[in-house]
Amino acid sequence: MSTFAFDVSHFLAGSLVLLSFFLLYQDRLPPLINIFAAQSLVLAVSIAWQAQTQNAPHLLVTAGIALCFKSIVIPFVLYRLIRDLRIHRTVETVVGIGPTMIAGMALVGLSMALMMRATSGIADLAREDLAFSLSVILLGLLMMVTRRNAVSQVIGFMSIENGLVLAATGAKGMPFVVEMSVAFSVLIALIVIGIFLFRIRERFDTVDVAILDRFRGERP
């Protein structure tokens, strides 16, 4: 593989991680959705580039799915969702931006150290891709853990899926069926979560999960 092709892939994967950091500290919902759309767009470009360099035309379909669903349909639906829920102007209280960012950097360091050791012996590009995708996954999880708003948790979940797809396309020869089913499962998750959010809101007047905890039946 030429150095140029490697550099471009590297750059795109790095951009995904950078956008994950954006997601981590953004505390208003509309920009959060924008960043997610941007991340999905970068992912689509990255997959298309992989299709080019790996000579794998079926990856173009994957890229198309990422582009259509994740950077257009899902953000659009989420926009409608927060508008209908009337939470598009709320500012979320994110626990300590500074510590969260430091934790995020530590996670990136961890995944680099781990993946570079674990994958010695395979192609360089795949190693970098795996390291970056693990970073994206861990950052998405961190986001889910630190946020209290259900919508931002959904976005964290979706960005985890972005990381998974990045890892899958970096490794050569992922079956197309797998990618399709992952894409559809994410869509279904979106639908289910959307419906649930409305139901929750109807019932409890909030989508703050900390407040939902009070209503759990098991707890005395």
């Binding site: 209290r148 939902l212 759990r216």
Partner: peptide, 25 residues
């Protein structure tokens, strides 16, 4: 552990994952 909140469960999963990855690293 039967009666934790969703956030606690998420935290638990996350911390376990990070711990295991650290051990592996």
């Amino acid at each position: 552990f039967q009666f934790l909140t969703i956030r606690r469960y998420l935290n638990l999963v996350f911390l376990t994952l990070v711990f295991l990855l650290t051990v592996l690293a």
